[in-house]
């Protein structure tokens, strides 16, 4: 059949494609041919349901819309960066150099101070030796109360003998027999 009727396929497609109708003469010729060609007649007859099914299936998709604004296109075609004269870049480079130098100096200061603080030795936990304090410890107080306190102070471990505890006076008199303190008057240190 195709040898007899050249271009059957394309004419059938054009016949079915409503948007691009065949001319009146071509259409009449195709219909006349379909009377003698069973294959073409079958294709034309059953092409219509396929055509209708496709139009129906694509109909909802033809309603899809987008809300893109033309501004997006303008953004896309806008020049990315304007050409800048090299002389206009000099102040910017200068300011960047200042920023960099400040950053480096601050960093060096911070690092240097942290290293210095780590190298300094910690102060000793024991108190420093005081000559004045030693002197006053060696001298007995003048008044009575402080004198007894001084005795208790110097009586600590340096004392070679053990003595009784000190009985403090009550009401102007000792509450017990007075004990003579037999203790050498030695320097505490």
């Amino acid at each position: 059949m195709k040898l007899i009727w050249g271009g059957c396929e394309s004419r059938e497609a054009a016949y079915l494609a409503g948007a691009d109708r065949l001319g009146a003469r071509d259409r009449a010729a195709l219909e006349a041919h379909a009377m003698t060609c069973v294959e073409c007649a079958d294709a034309l007859r059953n092409g219509r349901p396929v055509d209708a099914a496709l139009r129906s299936a694509f109909a909802p998709l033809r309603e899809r819309r987008t809300i893109i604004a033309p501004g997006r296109v303008r953004l896309a075609v806008a020049p990315r960066s304007l050409p800048v004269s090299p002389w206009l870049r000099v102040p910017r480079i200068f300011s960047r150099l200042i920023e960099a130098s400040v950053m480096v100096s601050v960093t060096l200061f911070a690092v240097g101070s942290s290293l210095e603080s780590s190298t300094v030795q910690a102060p000793p936990m024991t108190p420093t030796h005081s000559v004045v304090q030693d002197y006053f410890r060696a001298q007995p107080p003048i008044d009575e109360l402080n004198y007894f306190r001084w005795l208790r102070l110097v009586k600590t471990d340096v004392s070679p003998t053990v003595s009784d505890s000190v009985h403090l006076p009550a009401g102007g008199r000792f509450d017990g027999d007075q004990v003579e303190i037999v203790k050498e008057r030695t320097a505490p240190f």
Partner: peptide, 11 residues
């Protein structure tokens, strides 16, 4: 097959 099998489309 001689008889028409398609409905003629108005020109």
């Amino acid at each position: 097959a001689r008889k028409p099998v398609t409905a003629p489309v108005p020109i």
